[in-house]
Amino acid sequence: MSGALDNAVVLHDVTLAYDGHPAVHHLSGEFARGSLTAIVGPNGSGKSTLMKGMVGLLRPANGVVKAAGLGGSKIAYLPQHAEIETRFPISVIQIVLLGHWRRIGWGRPVSRALREGAQRALAAVSLEGFEQWPVETLSAGQLQRVLFARLIVQDAELILLDEPLAGVDECTSEHLLGLIVSWHREGRTVAAVLHDLDQVRAYFPETLLLARERVAWGPTREVLMPQNLRRARRMSEAWSGEAEHRRPVSAARPATPTPHPNPLPAPALTLPRSPGREGWGQSEEREGPA
């Protein structure tokens, strides 16, 4: 890492909009170089939109996103429910090799060294021997591990993960969290959208709590205080006319804001996401209705 600048990404008064509806309002702050940040918030709070804004897939309606000292090549991005055509006839090793895109592009050949790099990455996600498996035979957890292997091969300085643990089993979750932490140790800057606050507390030193605008951003322990969570929830009620669903059809497209506040009482909104794990709903429930 160059170390010339302290911040990997600087957001200055950033507003991001989807189809004309602002999803992130006037967000300012910075992701320090080498930091490991969780991005949490109620559904529709603009987490995925912020990710897209940081990758450059969405141009800010206002403000500036500065990925300081990072060319586009240094950013690796894993979108939510990656729009992957799982019936496509492609093998595991071919997917991982795509991580070398900057080096191979449209037509350059794949050298032995690059292939070995891909094989090492597969070993790192415990998928040795799966090289020739077609993608359609993989489980959701295996596919996510293959995509993590591709991230390893990309060797990026800034890694952005949008709900990387959605839909994978407990064991794979632990494995992937271990990889994320190891990237942090290697000095990379990592930001991940997550839902499980227990996981955030256990693995992520920094947290950004987002509810379309910045609710709190800093050390995880301070950010995930009950009053902050309650505030985020209240703000989400202002834009969400209907009961929150733990699994939105598309969190990338936030619910359309409605002019009237949520008529439902707060406890009706608190469906536990996964039993035995503290998610958004349960932490609220424990703290009583807002």
Binding site: A82, E83, F88, L98, G105, W106, G107
Partner: peptide, 21 residues
């Protein structure tokens, strides 16, 4: 033959191609 590789990626994972290229 020229666009084979990006076309394959575009079919398999269009988001990845958008982000990379």
């Amino acid at each position: 033959a020229v666009i084979y590789r990006p076309l394959v990626v575009e079919c398999f994972d269009p988001g990845f191609l958008r982000a990379m290229d």
